[in-house]
């Protein structure tokens, strides 16, 4: 099939970027979206041009490296990661717009690559359970109701891709932050640090320049892992509790 792609090209963080159009005459519908970009890059390289920079690693939908905005939708038209999107979701002759995540918390590094270091710093602000190696009690000493464990797992499947931020009209990273709050908050092991965790993570979220959540829900629709909206409600509940308890 033949397709046309409009790709955001930006040399580095300080450069001004622009959309550039490329024609691809010979792609197959079994190709993944990133393989299509590989093909484009091979052509560009042979022509001596700079290939399009984009992040990807596992190409299995689990590492969260990949992610571009395709036709205005983070990760494109299917509920999956960019690497798991295939050209069979498009038609012969389509024009496809490809842009990087756009949010001031995610500055563009080059072309389609953005800096998501903010996510790591949000985790640093409390997204963990403080347990030193070797001091852990026997694993089965503390049963966890299956339902809680399953819910915690569901929230823990967040891959840190950042699509939620790219989709949120406010550039808010609340879904990402709340997924971690929920994962750890549902487990008995996570209780001692429950208040300090939510306080720290929300403060860091704001300090990174992400927007506030106004409960639009666009994030969950774009999320390749289907992180549910009630995690944000849980974060709100936890923060309210922590503030009310005077823990701030």
């Amino acid at each position: 099939m033949k397709i046309t792609v409009n790709v955001w090209r930006q040399k580095n963080a300080d450069a001004k970027g622009a959309m550039v159009t490329y024609q691809l005459d010979d792609v197959l519908e079994d190709m993944s979206f990133l393989e299509m970009l590989d093909v484009l890059n091979e052509t560009l390289t042979l022509a001596g041009e700079d290939p399009v920079a984009f992040d990807s690693d596992c190409r299995e939908g689990i590492c969260g490296s990949c992610g571009v905005v395709i036709n205005g939708i983070p990760h494109g038209p299917e509920v999956t990661t960019t690497c798991q999107l295939h050209l069979r979701s498009f038609k012969d002759g389509d024009v496809i717009d490809i842009e990087p995540w756009r949010a001031s918390g995610f500055p563009v590094v080059k072309d389609l690559v953005v800096d998501r270091g903010a996510f790591d710093r949000i985790i640093q602000a409390g997204g963990y359970i403080s347990v030193n190696t070797g001091s852990a009690p026997e694993a089965n000493n503390l049963p966890v109701p299956k339902e809680d464990a399953d819910h915690a797992f569901e929230a823990a499947t967040c891959i840190g891709c950042g699509a939620c931020v790219a989709a949120c009209p406010n550039g808010s990273a609340m879904l990402f932050t709340a997924a971690k709050i929920t994962h750890l908050g549902l487990l008995p092991q996570g209780q001692p640090e429950r208040d300090s965790r939510v306080l720290g993570m929300v403060e860091q979220h704001d300090a990174e320049g992400f927007g506030g959540c106004t409960n639009i829900g666009e994030c969950t629709t774009a999320c390749p892992k289907g992180i549910p909206l009630d995690v944000i409600s849980r974060l709100n509940r936890d923060l309210l509790g922590a503030l009310a308890a005077g823990k701030a």
Binding site: S104, G105, P107, V109, D115, G117, A118, S172, V198, L199, V202, E203, Q204, H205, D206, A207, E208, G209, G211, G212, C213, T214, L235, N236, L239, L240, A242, L243, A248
Partner: peptide, 21 residues
């Protein structure tokens, strides 16, 4: 890498707290 880090404000003045208000 430097990003758009803003001044850190206490959670009681965070975006979430404003939404409570």
């Amino acid at each position: 890498m430097s990003t758009t880090q803003l001044k850190r404000v206490p959670a009681s003045r965070s975006t979430v707290a404003k939404k409570y208000a």
